[in-house]
Amino acid sequence: MAAMAPYFDDLAERLRASGVPADEVSETVDDLAAYVAESGKAPEEEFGPVEEFAARLTSPGDDAWEQALPDVPARRFFRSKRFYVFISCYAAFVVVVCAGWLAFAPADSRTGFLVGFLLGAVIAAVLMTVRLRRDHRRHVP
């Protein structure tokens, strides 16, 4: 991110000089920096020279912002690490509770439903863990 900072600092300065409100400048620059960090490309490669990109962003017209920004494909799945960690921890909790029920409940109360539920929870936890590791490997250089 340190190598990208001069590009975005220059862009913010040019946008402010063009009369774009400061809060809009910071929001735009933060969004663009996040996009570049996710894409893995250099800002110049993604948006072009800073002076041309700033000119496109500040050009008059109702849809100037939309025309200047690159097309970003919609994601099919929600990919927040916090979400996946929560789901994984919840699945682990369910597995522990079900395993405890199977281990300590009277023999006549061990139903097929509980065993099926436990099996489903284990499968869900394994699939979630595999997906997290695969996504982590994809995003780590």
Rank of each mutant, 00 (worst) to 15 (best):
A55T: 03
R14N: 01
R131W: 06
R131F: 11
F8E: 01
F8T: 04
D10S: 13
L57S: 04
A17N: 07
F78W: 14
F113H: 06
V72A: 09
V97A: 12
M4R: 01
A74G: 07
G40I: 01
P21F: 03
A12P: 01
L119H: 13
S26F: 09
V122H: 13
A92R: 02
A42H: 08
A99Q: 11
W65V: 03
V36T: 15
R75A: 14
M1N: 09
A33V: 05
Y35P: 04
D108I: 03
S80N: 06
G19H: 09
R75C: 05
F86T: 08
L102A: 04
F86L: 08
F83I: 08
T129Q: 09
W65I: 01
R82K: 12
V97F: 07
A91L: 07
D9E: 06
P49G: 09
L15P: 03
A74Y: 04
P21D: 10
M4Y: 13
G61S: 05
A105E: 10
A3P: 02
F93A: 12
E66F: 08
R131C: 00
G48K: 07
W65D: 06
F78H: 13
A5D: 06
F47I: 04
E38R: 14
H139N: 14
M128V: 12
A92N: 01
E66Q: 12
S26E: 15
G120K: 10
A22E: 06
F93E: 00
F47W: 04
A54Q: 07
F8L: 01
R79G: 10
C98S: 13
M1I: 00
L57C: 05
D10Q: 07
S26M: 12
A92Y: 00
A3V: 04
A33S: 15
D10L: 07
V115H: 09
A68S: 09
A121C: 15
T111A: 11
Y7A: 00
P49A: 15
A68R: 05
S109T: 11
T111Q: 06
G120R: 13
P6W: 04
T111G: 12
H139K: 15
V36I: 09
V130W: 14
W101V: 02
D108A: 12
F93L: 09
P106Y: 10
